[in-house]
């Protein structure tokens, strides 16, 4: 009975959704509502107003900066939730659950990972810094740095990894994304514009016109560092097994 009811409900939903899809305007039609309101303005004037060649970055960081600020705060809240459940490590020797294994990691894999991780980080720095001219940007680069931290921690263990990025480096940088946005937004206020205006009316005229690009890159770097550190902290909190106070050394 339950199954029949579920099936009926799902088929009714499918019919409804298909009906709605059929009544939508065709894809790519120039008269669509999505293509007539704000999109032409973005496409025509983004380069002149935001000084970014990549229109997507211009829209994400400049025209709709508030949205992105909210998203960045959501990522920060995810880290806060994970830490509230799993707890933050204290200073001392930490072990993850791969470290305690009787099986040591293979020498070939260790050598290759040691060789690869710098290249991965180099590429992610390229992705972060070229966000305004090519696809990618802060969050993507931060996720790639998180991937490099994942593989380093998996092969060399949590002890080695958390020695490279200790808690006192990670903790301030986790808020870098939100702080970067807040800093640049406040600069807009100081310069006589609104919150999150990049081209401040009073200051920008006297300074170099490409200042807007530098502010965008600043926000990108903040998002990248913050995202990377958030992912690393979530990973460390998840694979940490138990704590030991550091022996006097």
């Amino acid at each position: 009975m339950k199954k029949v009811a579920a099936l009926l409900f799902i088929s009714a939903l499918a019919v409804l959704l298909l009906y709605v899809v059929a009544s939508m305007p065709p894809m790519g039609d120039p008269d669509n509502p999505t293509a007539t309101h704000v999109i032409p303005r973005y496409l025509e004037r983004a380069e002149e107003e935001t000084h970014t060649v990549n229109v997507v970055t211009g829209v994400i960081l400049n025209y709709r900066g508030y949205d992105t600020m909210g998203e960045v705060t959501v990522i920060f809240c995810a880290l806060a939730a994970v830490l509230a459940v799993l707890g933050r490590e204290r200073r001392g020797v930490i072990h993850g659950f791969v470290d305690r294994s009787e099986v040591p990691a293979s020498v070939i894999v260790k050598t290759m990972v040691r060789f690869m991780v710098p290249f991965i980080i180099l590429f992610s720095v390229y992705t972060i810094l070229h966000g305004e001219t090519s696809p990618g940007g802060g969050f993507q680069g931060g996720a790639v740095i998180g991937g490099s931290m994942i593989i380093f921690t998996t092969i060399f263990g949590l002890y080695e990894s958390s020695r490279r990025i200790p808690l006192k480096v990670r903790a301030p940088l986790e808020g870098a994304a939100v702080m970067g946005f807040f800093l640049v937004g406040s600069l807009g206020l100081v310069g006589g514009g609104n919150f999150l205006t990049y081209a401040w009316p009073r200051v920008a005229q006297g300074l170099h016109p490409s200042l807007v690009v530098w502010l965008t890159v600043l926000v990108e770097v903040g998002i990248g560092l913050g995202g990377a550190m958030v992912l690393t902290s979530i990973l460390f909190a998840m694979i940490r097994e138990e704590e030991e106070i550091a022996p006097a050394s």
Binding site: P135, F139, Q140, A143, G146, I150, L235, M238, I239
Partner: peptide, 22 residues
């Protein structure tokens, strides 16, 4: 391509390993 980068980095790379750890 922006979405493709995000999906490849987060969806395929990070979340898979985090799921496996869980």
């Amino acid at each position: 391509p922006d979405l493709a980068l995000t999906e490849a980095a987060v969806g395929a790379g990070v979340t898979t390993v985090l799921f496996v750890i869980t």
